[in-house]
Amino acid sequence: MKIVYQDFGAAANVVITNTVFEFRKHNRVVDTTLFLVPEVASKHLGFFIMKTVISGKTKHVLRAYKIALRETGRCQR
Results as ranks from 00 to 15, higher is better:
I3L: 14
V4I: 12
V4Y: 02
Y5E: 05
F8D: 09
A10I: 13
A11T: 05
A12D: 00
A12V: 04
A12E: 00
N13W: 02
V14Q: 05
V14L: 12
V15K: 00
V15Q: 00
I16Q: 01
I16H: 01
I16M: 14
T17S: 15
N18E: 09
T19A: 09
T19S: 13
V20A: 13
V20I: 14
E22A: 15
F23H: 07
R24G: 01
R24L: 08
H26D: 05
H26G: 07
H26Q: 11
N27L: 15
R28I: 05
V30L: 15
V30P: 09
L34G: 04
L34M: 12
L34I: 07
F35P: 13
L36P: 08
V37D: 11
E39G: 13
E39A: 15
E39Q: 14
E39P: 08
E39N: 10
V40Q: 05
V40E: 09
V40P: 09
V40Y: 02
A41V: 01
A41G: 12
A41K: 08
S42L: 08
S42H: 07
K43M: 01
H44Y: 05
L45S: 11
G46Y: 03
G46V: 00
F47H: 07
F47S: 07
F47Y: 04
F48L: 15
F48G: 14
I49A: 14
I49F: 02
M50I: 15
M50L: 15
K51F: 00
V53I: 08
V53H: 00
I54E: 00
G56Y: 00
G56H: 06
K59Q: 04
K59M: 10
H60A: 07
V61P: 04
V61H: 03
V61I: 12
L62Q: 09
R63S: 06
R63Y: 00
A64K: 06
A64S: 04
Y65W: 05
L69G: 11
L69W: 02
L69D: 06
L69Y: 04
L69I: 04
R70P: 08
E71F: 09
T72Q: 08
T72A: 14
T72G: 13
G73C: 09
R74W: 02
R74M: 06
R74P: 05
Q76A: 10
